[in-house]
Amino acid sequence: MMNDKKKLTLKDIGRELGISVSTVSRALKAHPDIAEETIKLVKEYAETHNYVPNFLAVNFRKNKTFNIGLIVPELVHHFFSTVISGAISEANRQGYNLLVSQSNDILKDEILASRAMLNSSVDGLLISISNETVEGDHLREFLNEGKPVVQFDKITDYLPTPKVIVDDFDGAYSAVKHLIDEGYTRIAHIRGREDVKNSSERCAGYLKAIQDHNLESDPDWVKVCRKISDQEGYDFAKELMESKNPPNAIFCITDLVALGVLRYLKEKGYHIPKDVGLIGFSNWMLSRVSTPQLSTVEQHGFQMGVDATNLLIEMIGNHDVENLKTVEIKTELVIRESTTLSKA
Results as ranks from 00 to 15, higher is better:
residue 195 D to T: 14
residue 110 E to W: 06
residue 113 A to E: 08
residue 326 T to L: 01
residue 319 H to S: 14
residue 148 P to M: 10
residue 157 D to N: 13
residue 148 P to S: 05
residue 101 S to L: 13
residue 328 E to D: 00
residue 207 L to R: 13
residue 265 L to W: 05
residue 26 R to L: 14
residue 82 T to K: 10
residue 237 A to W: 03
residue 12 D to H: 13
residue 96 Y to T: 09
residue 65 T to H: 07
residue 116 A to V: 13
residue 65 T to E: 03
residue 174 S to T: 10
residue 14 G to Y: 05
residue 39 I to K: 15
residue 62 K to M: 11
residue 49 H to E: 07
residue 163 K to F: 04
residue 31 H to S: 09
residue 235 D to Y: 06
residue 89 S to Q: 14
residue 72 V to W: 03
residue 211 Q to G: 00
residue 160 P to R: 11
residue 260 G to M: 04
residue 104 N to Y: 11
residue 55 F to C: 01
residue 67 N to T: 09
residue 68 I to D: 00
residue 214 N to H: 15
residue 139 L to T: 03
residue 123 D to N: 10
residue 72 V to A: 06
residue 340 T to H: 10
residue 307 D to I: 12
residue 296 T to E: 07
residue 244 K to Q: 12
residue 119 N to Q: 12
residue 55 F to P: 00
residue 205 G to T: 02
residue 7 K to E: 14
residue 52 V to I: 15
residue 290 S to D: 02
residue 260 G to I: 05
residue 63 N to I: 00
residue 121 S to Y: 11
residue 230 D to K: 13
residue 168 D to T: 01
residue 46 A to H: 11
residue 235 D to K: 12
residue 38 T to D: 02
residue 44 E to K: 14
residue 34 I to M: 07
residue 228 I to H: 01
residue 81 S to I: 07
residue 174 S to L: 10
residue 113 A to V: 08
residue 223 K to M: 10
residue 318 N to L: 10
residue 223 K to E: 03
residue 305 G to V: 08
residue 7 K to Q: 15
residue 61 R to T: 06
residue 4 D to R: 12
residue 59 N to P: 08
residue 205 G to C: 04
residue 287 S to I: 02
residue 111 I to P: 07
residue 7 K to A: 15
residue 12 D to Y: 04
residue 299 Q to M: 14
residue 297 V to K: 05
residue 105 D to T: 06
residue 187 I to C: 09
residue 18 G to A: 08
residue 317 G to K: 15
residue 147 K to Q: 04
residue 85 S to N: 12
residue 238 K to T: 05
residue 132 E to Q: 15
residue 264 Y to N: 09
residue 121 S to A: 09
residue 225 C to I: 05
residue 2 M to I: 15
residue 20 S to Y: 08
residue 153 D to E: 11
residue 66 F to P: 00
residue 321 V to D: 01
residue 99 L to W: 07
residue 335 I to W: 02
residue 165 I to Y: 04
residue 277 G to E: 02
residue 59 N to W: 08
residue 213 H to T: 03
residue 77 H to A: 11
residue 58 V to I: 13
residue 180 I to S: 06
residue 107 L to S: 12
residue 217 S to G: 00
residue 33 D to N: 12
residue 274 K to M: 01
residue 150 V to F: 08
residue 30 A to W: 00
residue 222 V to W: 01
residue 88 I to S: 08
residue 290 S to A: 13
residue 147 K to I: 07
residue 165 I to M: 08
residue 292 P to F: 01
residue 135 E to A: 11
residue 310 N to C: 06
residue 232 E to S: 03
residue 175 A to P: 09
residue 300 H to M: 07
residue 239 E to R: 02
residue 1 M to H: 09
residue 68 I to Q: 02
residue 86 G to T: 03
residue 117 M to T: 02
residue 122 V to N: 03
residue 225 C to M: 06
residue 286 L to H: 08
residue 207 L to I: 12
residue 147 K to A: 04
residue 314 E to Y: 01
residue 132 E to W: 01
residue 68 I to M: 11
residue 98 L to K: 07
residue 192 G to C: 07
residue 313 I to P: 03
residue 174 S to C: 02
residue 81 S to N: 10
residue 138 H to L: 07
